[in-house]
C-alpha cells in the first residue's frame, strides 16, 4: 500500500472514500434499496393494477386498450351497493373513532394517565384479524352481548337480538374499526396535548373561559392537525382493508376490497380486469387520502415552528 495517503492523514483518507461516490449522489445511493422495494412492489403494483384494469393482461398477449372493465364495474348494481357500503363504513368508523378518540384522550389526561395510556396502546397492538374475531364473539346473535341481554331479561333469544354482525348495514365492521382505531386517535391526541397546550388552557381559564369554551377555542385547534392526520389514516385503512369486512360483513353487498378479491378469485380470468379496476379505485381513493395527510402534516409542522 502506498504511503502518501497515510502520510497526508486521516482526513484525506476520508476524502478518498468520499471521492468514490460524489456527495450529491450519496443520498440516492443510500435510498436506492428502499426505493427499489417501493418502486418495484408499490409503484409497480399500482401501475400493473391500472394497466390490467385497462385490459392489458401480462403474458396473455392482449393489445387492446379498453375501459370495458370500468364500464362493467360501474354498471354492476353489486358494485354500486358496495361503494355505498364502503363509504358508509369509512365515514361512520372515522367519525366515531375521531370523536371517541378525542373524548378518551381528554378523559385519560385527567385521570390515571399512565396505566390508561398503556391500555390504549395494547389495543393498538391487537391485529385486526383478532379484533374481528373478538367483535364476532361479542356481537353475533348468539354472542356474549346477546347472552348478557338474555340473562338481564332484555333479549328473548338470538332471534330477538339485533343483527350486528354480517349485517347489511355494516355495524359489525364499523364496531371493529371503531374499537381498534379510537385508541389510535386517542394516543395521537394525547401525544399532541403537550405542556404548552396545558399552559394555554391555564391562561384561558385565568381569563375566565369555561370548560367547553377552553376546549373549543384552545385545546381543539391545537390538537386538530395531528388528530385530523390520524383520522385520514383511519379512513384510508377503513376503505381498503380486507379481513374485517370479509369476516364481519356480508358477501353481498361487500366492501370494495372484498369485491376486488372476489373478482380476482373468480375462475373466469376475463373478470380479472374488473378486479383490477376495483383495486385501482381503492388505490386512488387511498392516495388522495395520503395527499391530504401530507398537507395536514406540513401545516402542522409549520404551525409548531
Amino acid at each position: 500500500m502506498s504511503q502518501p495517503v497515510v502520510s497526508t492523514g486521516p482526513t484525506t483518507r476520508q476524502h478518498a472514500v468520499r471521492r468514490g461516490v460524489p456527495e450529491r449522489l450519496r443520498p440516492l445511493l443510500l435510498l436506492s434499496p428502499a426505493l427499489l422495494v417501493v418502486g418495484v412492489f408499490f409503484v409497480g403494483g399500482v401501475a400493473q393494477a391500472v394497466l390490467q384494469s385497462l385490459g392489458r393482461q401480462p403474458f396473455l398477449g392482449q393489445t387492446d386498450w379498453s375501459f370495458d372493465a370500468y364500464r362493467a364495474t360501474f354498471a354492476d348494481p353489486a358494485f354500486r351497493a358496495s361503494l355505498t357500503l364502503t363509504l358508509r363504513v369509512v365515514v361512520l368508523s372515522t367519525g366515531l373513532a375521531t370523536v371517541l378518540g378525542v373524548a378518551v384522550a381528554l378523559l385519560v389526561r385527567r385521570h390515571a394517565r399512565g396505566p390508561l395510556t398503556t391500555l390504549l396502546q395494547s389495543t393498538l397492538a391487537v391485529p385486526h384479524l383478532v379484533g374481528a374475531l373478538c367483535i364476532g364473539l361479542l356481537l353475533s346473535p348468539s354472542g356474549f352481548a346477546s347472552r348478557l341481554g338474555t340473562g338481564a331479561g332484555l333479549v328473548d333469544g338470538p332471534q330477538d337480538f339485533p343483527v350486528l354482525t354480517n349485517d347489511a348495514f355494516g355495524w359489525g365492521i364499523i364496531a371493529e374499526y371503531t374499537w381498534k382505531e379510537a385508541p389510535f386517535v386517542a394516543v395521537v391526541a394525547l401525544a399532541s396535548m403537550t405542556p404548552h397546550v396545558r399552559d394555554l388552557e391555564g391562561a384561558a381559564r385565568v381569563l375566565g373561559a369555561g370548560r367547553w369554551r377552553r376546549f373549543t377555542s384552545v385545546t381543539l385547534p391545537l390538537i386538530a392537525p395531528p388528530v385530523a392526520a390520524a383520522s385520514v389514516l383511519v379512513a384510508s385503512f377503513a376503505a381498503a382493508s380486507y379481513e374485517v369486512p370479509r369476516l364481519l360483513g356480508q358477501s353481498f353487498p361487500a366492501t370494495l376490497p372484498v369485491v376486488a378479491l372476489q373478482r380476482y378469485q373468480d375462475t373466469d380470468l376475463l373478470v380479472r380486469p374488473q378486479a383490477m379496476a376495483v383495486a385501482t379505485i381503492i388505490a386512488v381513493l387511498s392516495l388522495v387520502l395520503v395527499a391530504a395527510y401530507l398537507t395536514l402534516v406540513s401545516r402542522l409542522s409549520r404551525r409548531s415552528l
Binding site: 435510498l31 409497480g44 393494477a49 389514516l233
Partner: peptide, 29 residues
C-alpha cells in the same frame, strides 16, 4: 436533496395504501 418531498411521499404511500390493491397487480409476476 432535490426530490426529498417525492421520496417522502413514496415512503409514506405504502404505509397508508393497504397492500391488497397493490398486490393484486403484481401477483402474476
Amino acid at each position: 436533496f432535490r426530490g426529498r418531498r417525492l421520496v417522502q411521499f413514496l415512503l409514506l404511500a405504502p404505509v397508508i395504501v393497504p397492500g391488497l390493491a397493490v398486490t393484486l397487480g403484481i401477483q402474476v409476476f
